[in-house]
Amino acid sequence: MTWGFDCSQWELDLDLSFIEQFNYDPPDDVMFLTTWHENESFKEMIEHAKFCTGYSPDEYVQQVVILNIR
């Protein structure tokens, strides 16, 4: 997840770096999901991470790592 100014570019860079590892053809059993949250508050982005990224309604993210790049 990316958040803040120009975060859509960071999200694109993450996606591209992932698929480059597999010569632009990642295997079906490998998943890498990214989202960008440019016009949301930090709190909204964290709530999305906690409640909207599980595989089922009863599954929640247990840990969030924040990387602050300035």
Rank of each mutant, 00 (worst) to 15 (best):
Q62N: 08
K43L: 12
F18M: 10
H37D: 11
L12C: 09
W3S: 00
N39I: 15
K50G: 03
L12M: 12
Q62E: 09
Q63V: 04
H37Q: 15
N23K: 15
L12N: 12
T34R: 11
E59N: 05
L14V: 13
L16T: 13
S8Q: 15
F42P: 00
E47W: 08
F42E: 04
Q62V: 09
V65C: 09
K43H: 13
E38D: 15
Q62K: 12
D29C: 07
L14E: 11
N39Q: 15
W36G: 04
W3I: 02
F5H: 14
T35V: 07
Q63W: 03
K43W: 11
F32R: 03
N68V: 02
F22N: 06
D29R: 04
N39P: 11
F42M: 03
L12Y: 10
I46H: 01
K50D: 03
K43P: 01
N39V: 14
I19W: 07
Q9T: 01
Q63S: 04
A49L: 06
Q9A: 03
S8H: 15
P26S: 13
F5S: 06
E40R: 10
F18S: 04
N23T: 07
H37K: 14
N23V: 08
W10A: 11
Y24P: 00
V64D: 05
F42V: 01
E40G: 05
E59D: 10
M45Q: 00
D25F: 10
Y60T: 14
N68K: 06
P27C: 05
C52E: 10
W3K: 00
Q21P: 02
D13E: 15
